[in-house]
Design a protein around this nucleic acid. Sequence first.
DNA 1: TCTTCTCTGCCTACTAGTAGGATGATGACA
DNA 2: TGTCATCATCCTACTAGTAGGCAGAGAAGA
Lengths: 192, 192
Amino acid sequence: MNSIDTRTQILDAAQDLIQRLGVNAMSYQDISEAVGIRKASIHYHFPTKDDLVAALLDRYHDYFLRLVDGIIAQPDSAEIKLRRYCSLFEATLSSGNGDKACLYGMVGAELATLKHYLVDRVTAFYRDNEDRLVRILTQGKDSGEFGFAGDIRAMATSIFSLLEGGFLVARAHGGAAQYRAIVEQLMRLVKG
Amino acid sequence: MNSIDTRTQILDAAQDLIQRLGVNAMSYQDISEAVGIRKASIHYHFPTKDDLVAALLDRYHDYFLRLVDGIIAQPDSAEIKLRRYCSLFEATLSSGNGDKACLYGMVGAELATLKHYLVDRVTAFYRDNEDRLVRILTQGKDSGEFGFAGDIRAMATSIFSLLEGGFLVARAHGGAAQYRAIVEQLMRLVKG
DNA sequence: TCTTCTCTGCCTACTAGTAGGATGATGACA
DNA sequence: TGTCATCATCCTACTAGTAGGCAGAGAAGA
């Protein structure tokens, strides 16, 4: 109904604001102006800010990992899967004016200001992503596409760190073009 | 004298708070309690919060790049230089309770909430670090220590992104041990 | 009527920042 | 040496603005 629409609008606006400004710089007043409803009405849907952030993290987690699992399920080469995975991040970077970061990257930076149950969600997201990368890398090793040195788990962790970091750095300096250059360099290194 | 001490104490406290909580979550009240002086006294040394952040970024930039240049100036192998460079980041991670991030990583995440002249400082720090990495990588390529594929500039950007990202990710999940694992993986990839 | 949703109007806590006074060290001068 | 003015530092006390959040009224559909 209309209520669901409003709820979604609130989530969309909040996500956009967090990806640009961060959790602490995002306020109910900002959302209020973006959506066009009163501040108190947001509290009806999300009683506290933590409730809102939790809902946002859950939604993004489900959305993102569904896309990743969709990529993995395809009968493609490991290289194509890894490229598609990287392009998921790039899509976010390009979706705004190049000033949007990964939601979990932003929240991760402000980790120490978050309630424990929100921190748990962040670590779960990181872990789940690394697990998916392990699967892609394993396929690539088995098929002989990837010949990188070192063990697969360390490589998966490194790739995820590289993408999250590349995201933040590119936003400050270089933009989407620099992010793409990092991905290309990653592909070369993975092939070994 | 005592005034310099106070000023330094304020900078130290502010840096610690920003590395844990971020710029926006850090308040003059927090610094006041950490240093043991009144809030208005901080305004005497740093009239606005932007003045304080600017001084902090300048101090960290000078401090960090002095260390980096010291590493580069030594007659060591490129591998040792790169390892030492990576350990500079790790020292920060280990200095607290594993909850401190790179100052510029935190500020970079909150980039959109900053005044333009602070943004310029962040991009300058990133650029200067990438330049130093280019030098180390060039030495390694010339000496035959490093055999990675792709061009040096892209590799330098990737390494810096990896370290900044690895920093943030490790803080949430894995800690210093995971950061070290990322560095080891990086060394393997660089050698090619 | 009951439920769902959004509103007005308010609260307390906290933010950065300001005005102006107290303290205390320094240095010039007689 | 004693006195006085200056200056840096830190203080108390305050401002305006904004944060998250709450109570309760009104609207509107089932």
